[in-house]
Computed example of a mutant assay.
Amino acid sequence: MSTLYLFYKPYQVLSQFSDDKGRTTLADYIKVPNIYPAGRLDYDSEGLLLLTDEGALQARITEPKYKLPKTYWVQVEGQITDEALEKLRKGVELNDGMTRPAKAAHFQAPAWLPERPEAVQPRPGLGTSWIELTLLEGRNRQVRRMTATVGFPTLRLVRYAIGTWTLDFIKVGRYRTTEVHMPVATASVVRKPSTKNPTAKTQTRKKSS
């Protein structure tokens, strides 16, 4: 069994435990020693970040060959069209090549999703709309580049899920744990329900002094 930490990364927090520029990092929220992120989430993005001390589990989560889907809630500038969504589904040409087919749909942000500390600012008269986008790959700033390519720049980006792990029941800046069993004979990752209080291990949102 391996312990997996599901952390709701706030806006403008680095997905690492140290920074020579004095920016807010994971160390300001997570005090557990010897755990590391399984993947990254941009400084100006929010949402689910997985951490573990188990190298094999980290590889299963991050390596492209396992094709673990990642689901994003994306607030874009303007009212996104069905035509733009269809382009995202089929794949768009970026400067590092064509993207894989994706799932893309109109979306209404849930009531429990908190406001971002720094409000989004669309250009006058354009407004915003939300989409849900699920990818099977993870290039640098891929979601932002994809929506910009189809004419709807990303203003806010929240990663909701990685595989079957989600943000459900996690507050911003806090985490819960779950136990994961990795069978030797299969490449799949099987979740085991945690017997721990989902909010028992938490850190405050304020930066430590």
Rank of each mutant, 00 (worst) to 15 (best):
M1Q: 09
L4W: 02
Y5E: 00
L6A: 12
L6T: 05
F7M: 10
V13K: 03
V13E: 00
Q16F: 02
F17T: 01
S18V: 10
K21D: 11
G22A: 01
R23V: 04
R23S: 04
R23E: 12
D28T: 07
I30Y: 03
K31D: 14
V32A: 06
V32F: 05
P33H: 10
Y36F: 15
P37C: 00
R40F: 12
D42Q: 07
Y43C: 09
S45H: 01
E46M: 03
L49C: 04
L50R: 03
L50H: 09
L51D: 00
L51V: 08
E54R: 13
G55A: 15
A56R: 14
Q58S: 15
Q58V: 05
R60S: 02
T62R: 01
E63R: 11
P69C: 10
P69D: 11
Y72E: 02
W73E: 04
V74P: 09
V74W: 08
Q75K: 14
V76D: 02
V76H: 06
E77V: 02
G78H: 07
D82V: 08
E83A: 14
L85M: 07
E86Y: 01
R89C: 10
K90H: 07
K90D: 00
G97C: 00
T99M: 10
R100K: 15
P101C: 09
A102L: 10
K103D: 11
A104Y: 10
A111C: 00
W112C: 02
E115N: 12
E115T: 12
P117I: 08
E118S: 09
Q121A: 12
P122W: 11
G125L: 08
T128E: 01
S129Q: 05
I131V: 13
T134F: 09
L135A: 06
L135G: 03
E137C: 04
E137S: 12
E137M: 09
G138Q: 10
G138R: 09
R139E: 05
R139D: 07
N140Y: 15
V143M: 05
V143L: 09
R145A: 06
A148T: 10
G151K: 06
F152P: 01
L157V: 07
V158M: 11
R159W: 06
Y160V: 03
A161I: 08
W165D: 07
L167H: 05
F169G: 05
T177A: 06
V180C: 08
V180T: 07
H181F: 13
A185F: 13
A185H: 14
T186S: 15
A187G: 15
V189Q: 01
K196Y: 13
T199M: 13
K201R: 11
